[in-house]
Design a protein around this nucleic acid. Sequence first.
DNA 1: TGGAAAATGCCAAGAATTCGCAATAAGGAT
DNA 2: ATCCTTATTGCGAATTCTTGGCATTTTCCA
Lengths: 151, 151
Amino acid sequence: MPRIRNKDRASAYRERLRNVGLRHTLPRERILSFLDRKNVHPTPEELYQGLRKKGYAIGLSTVYLNLQVLRDVGLIYEFKDPKGVTRYDGYSKPHHHLACRSCGRVEDVLASELPEFLEPVIPEVEAKSNWEVDSARVTFLGYCPRCKRSR
Amino acid sequence: MPRIRNKDRASAYRERLRNVGLRHTLPRERILSFLDRKNVHPTPEELYQGLRKKGYAIGLSTVYLNLQVLRDVGLIYEFKDPKGVTRYDGYSKPHHHLACRSCGRVEDVLASELPEFLEPVIPEVEAKSNWEVDSARVTFLGYCPRCKRSR
DNA sequence: TGGAAAATGCCAAGAATTCGCAATAAGGAT
DNA sequence: ATCCTTATTGCGAATTCTTGGCATTTTCCA
């Protein structure tokens, strides 16, 4: 497994931010970095606490502000889990969500592990609706392994 | 177009509610009825005002409570629009969402107008993940006809 | 039809999110 | 490398959104 230096990581985020017209800042890099893992979907408070636990000082209002800004430019995704809790997702590999109706858990499914079922329908949707579509996300609703047993 | 009597409507809702173990009440029927239309995705406040405008007295906390209850049993769907506003969807025909990154608008796309692209992948997802999936919703992200022009 | 259990709705309480603003940091220009 | 303009941060207050307590009303089945 190739080692990635901090500088490389930083410049990768710097570029992603510049591409969407945002400045690179430490809080932003840390938020993006925190979110860019599989199955990580924190609430704003959880993200805030998570960063502090890593020893990073950051303000809660900065967290809120940046979650908004990063969502607006499409770098992260905001959603409600099945219990109605607001969560954020910044995992950069294309993926979908499994959401458990019973316990509320949300798990990622990599798009690369599934056939390409979405790509062909996007042009159809565009044609039918006259919208311009640049991405699509699926939420699969049901029961996780633990909850499906106890029913 | 066949005429549907109020009694029939009421008993249809009564049955849907009983199927999920909930009592039939007037507030519930009115909420379900309000939401069961294409392209209707109100916030709790909008739903509350909408019902009052129809002349129905209802409490705001009753609206909140029932949105939760109905979501928990799967009769309605709760989501965030691209601007981060919490909205509800109770349209009973299977459909997906188009969401505009620019203005935040959300529009429904009937599943019946698209090929059956989801059904085949659900068993695959179940196999890969070991979850039990009972439904899937797609959010297509992009730009609506109005916003795509001005870019 | 009686009555236990569930639901409603008012208002207060509590959370979550945003705002105002002074201080700081970023990054293009010099 | 340093300056200078502008964006960003982060604190605490203000606001908005959502839930809780509880007396009253409804539901529905025995």
